[in-house]
Computed example of a mutant assay.
Amino acid sequence: MMMKQLLLSFSALLVFLLHCTTTIAQAPAKSPKPKLKGPANVTAILEKAHRFNSLIRLMENTQMGDRINTELATASGGLTLFAPADNAFASLKAGTLNSLTDLQKSQLVQFHVLTAYNSLPQFQTVSNPVPTQAGDTSKGHFPLSITMGGNQVNISTGLTNATITSSIYTDGQLAVYEVDKVLLPLEIFNPLPPAPAAAPKKAAAPPPPVLAPSPAAPVANITSVDASSAMGLMIRHAAVSFGVAAIAAFFL
């Protein structure tokens, strides 16, 4: 009898354990919490594409990569990057980048960054000149003109005519487009000649010198001259009269 009760108790325990195991196995697994998406890292995006090593080095040397990432984390309007591939940098004249100052290298990178996010269709309605991080868009500084014909986006700097060849990355905050040429700004590679200096004003001509009056010529003593002339006439008249009288007496 006692053995029978033990078997019943053991059976009940087995049934309970089997029920608990089945219940646990059927409970749905908890889904992992989604990772919060942070701002894009522009350098990491370019590295993943495996053909932007020259641009990455230029960004690292000028610390512009860190600046772009910081602005992506804080700016509300987003950014657009035109990324020349390695073959675009290779087509530049030898020594082009080495001839630039540190400031000019930074400006060159900034010239490839638009201050707002632009999807490809938005390039149809952009207002030229398009502002970049390089700053001033006035003539002779950093003008950038973007036009769209069909599905092709054309970019002109006044020195370079480039085309967007592919879309590398876009998330509504950052857009990265590959371009087939390095965008060369006029300000760096073809600066306007300085305005000619104003011609110096001619000095006023000095006034003519005041000439001292020349000394008056001595005035002849008119009275003395007239008296001498009269005396000579009287002598000649007397001589003539005397001669006439002598001749007359001779013939008498």
Rank of each mutant, 00 (worst) to 15 (best):
V113Y: 08
T62A: 04
A205F: 09
A44I: 11
S241M: 15
F82D: 03
L192Y: 09
T74W: 11
K35T: 08
G232D: 10
D180W: 03
A246P: 00
P34V: 11
T147C: 11
A249M: 05
T137K: 11
P185Q: 07
M3N: 08
P185V: 10
A212W: 00
I45Y: 03
G77T: 12
L79G: 03
S229R: 08
A205T: 02
L92Y: 08
K139Q: 15
H141R: 14
A27C: 09
V126N: 10
T132P: 06
F189K: 04
A40R: 03
D102C: 00
G149W: 00
A220C: 05
V244M: 14
A199T: 11
N161C: 03
T74I: 06
L97D: 02
A197Q: 13
L18A: 12
A75I: 04
K30T: 15
V109S: 07
K35P: 00
S229K: 06
I168F: 05
Q173C: 09
A116T: 11
L103V: 06
S127L: 13
S9V: 11
H50Q: 10
M148V: 04
E71A: 08
F82N: 02
S127W: 02
F250Y: 13
H50Y: 03
L18N: 09
A203I: 01
S31A: 15
K48P: 06
G65F: 12
A85W: 01
S224E: 12
L97T: 04
G77V: 07
A203Y: 01
A116H: 09
F189M: 05
T147A: 14
A73Y: 15
A40G: 05
P206W: 05
E178H: 14
P209M: 01
K4N: 03
A75K: 14
D86N: 02
A83H: 06
S9W: 01
F52G: 00
S76A: 15
L192R: 14
D171F: 01
L55V: 01
A216W: 01
G150S: 03
L36T: 12
N61H: 06
V15W: 03
I56M: 07
S138Y: 07
A116N: 15
I188D: 07
V15R: 01
A40F: 06
P196K: 05
P208K: 01
L7W: 09
A12T: 10
L13V: 10
L100C: 04
R57Q: 09
Q110N: 09
S229H: 01
T43D: 00
D66S: 13
T62Y: 12
L186K: 14
S76L: 15
T43N: 02
A239I: 07
A44F: 08
P121I: 13
L97Q: 05
K33L: 13
G158D: 09
C20G: 03
L120D: 05
Q63H: 08
K93V: 11
A245D: 03
D171E: 04
V182L: 10
L211T: 15
Q122L: 10
T101V: 09
T70C: 01
Q152G: 03
L46Y: 06
R236F: 11
P185S: 07
S241N: 12
S229T: 13
